[in-house]
């Protein structure tokens, strides 16, 4: 309920606030009339609505990806950003982007997502190798953060060698932003995000068993090997999707599942997966609103906003847990 209300309010705010303020009546009128009706129409239909849906879907995808990773590693601070998965996706994607710029071609959506997915999987594999060797969660997280730094450094390095005119574009993206979303992007996000979300939801049952630990999951008949692969692929697809369109966005993946757990007082996946999706969407709508209005017309980068709000949540959760176990 709270979530639905917050969602409604934020959807409204995201449409109404901007460099051209639009009153509610205008919005409703424009929505009724459909696209291509004057300035207001194009602001709403071409700029704000796609951006709004992008924030909603990608935010949700990130949060669900975070929830899956937290389940997988039985670690409360796992998330696509912390484990270096977003940064891995960013690295491979920027290599491909620069490559295509040099070749003078524009990249297709599918190629971008594919590249991000490969990057996400590469980071994931490194993390898995590490997690096979050390059982300590703190070590795992530190390694993830280091992978993230290395990938970001290499990306920065590549960016400084890229063609000048393209740098601004690439740089903006590598800081995270929902700007420049259009309807065809939203279509891809919605279909890919929707499918992944559905698949994640179908994994609810084994996820519940897995929350009791691997041995118990096996003992009630979960094929743990297959389940782990499914979980990894899904969370990689979700974070790759986000990275492909919005760049790496920090803290949504960690913070939102915690907030939702606090809100619903449960970890049941059939509540948490839709909950995280909505929560992530709300969180990103809010963050995006702040990013573009706080110092308008200058736009803040999204990751800074999500970090400001997300990091305290993580710290708070850590302190609240008994013994601060990592």
């Amino acid at each position: 309920m709270i979530l639905a209300a917050a969602l409604a309010v934020l959807l409204y705010l995201n449409l109404t606030i901007g460099s051209v303020p639009l009153p509610l009546a205008e919005i409703l009128k424009t929505l009724r009339e459909g696209p291509s009706s004057g300035t207001y129409g194009s602001i709403i239909w071409e700029i704000r609505m796609p951006r709004m849906f992008a924030a909603l879907i990608l935010g949700g995808a990130l949060a669900v990806s975070g929830f899956l990773l937290q389940t997988f590693f039985a670690n409360p601070i796992a998330g696509p950003f912390v484990l270096g998965i977003s940064s891995g996706a960013k690295l491979v994607l920027s290599i491909v982007m620069i490559g295509s710029m040099v070749a003078g071609r524009t990249l297709h959506s599918a190629a971008m997502i594919g590249a991000a997915f490969i990057g996400a999987l590469m980071s994931m594999l490194i993390i898995l190798v590490i997690s096979g060797r050390v059982k300590k969660m703190s070590v795992l997280v530190i390694c993830g953060i280091m992978i993230g730094y290395v990938c970001s450094a290499v990306t920065d390095f590549l960016v400084s060698f890229a063609d000048d005119s393209n740098i601004v574009n690439l740089h903006n993206w590598s800081m995270g932003s929902f700007s420049g979303s259009n309807w065809s992007h939203v279509g891809v996000m919605a279909s890919l995000g929707g499918i992944s979300l559905l698949l994640a939801f179908l994994l609810s049952k084994p996820i519940t068993a897995y929350q009791l630990g691997e041995r118990y999951a096996v003992s009630v008949g979960v094929n743990v090997k297959r389940f782990r692969v499914e979980l990894i692929l899904l969370s990689s697809v979700l974070s790759a999707l986000v990275t492909a369109y919005a760049g790496p966005v920090s803290f949504v993946g960690i913070a939102v599942p915690h907030l939702m757990r606090g809100l619903f007082r449960t970890t049941k996946p059939h509540v948490m997966i839709p909950g995280c999706f909505l929560g992530g969407g709300v969180f990103c709508l809010f963050a995006d609103l702040i990013a573009r209005t706080m110092f308008a017309p200058t736009e803040l980068n999204l990751s800074s906003v999500t970090a400001v709000f997300g990091a305290p949540v993580v710290i708070w959760t850590m302190l609240r847990r008994r013994g601060g176990r990592v």
Partner: peptide, 10 residues
Amino acid sequence: MTERVDPELM
């Protein structure tokens, strides 16, 4: 089994 089980919020 003996190994520790600690699910969250279950």
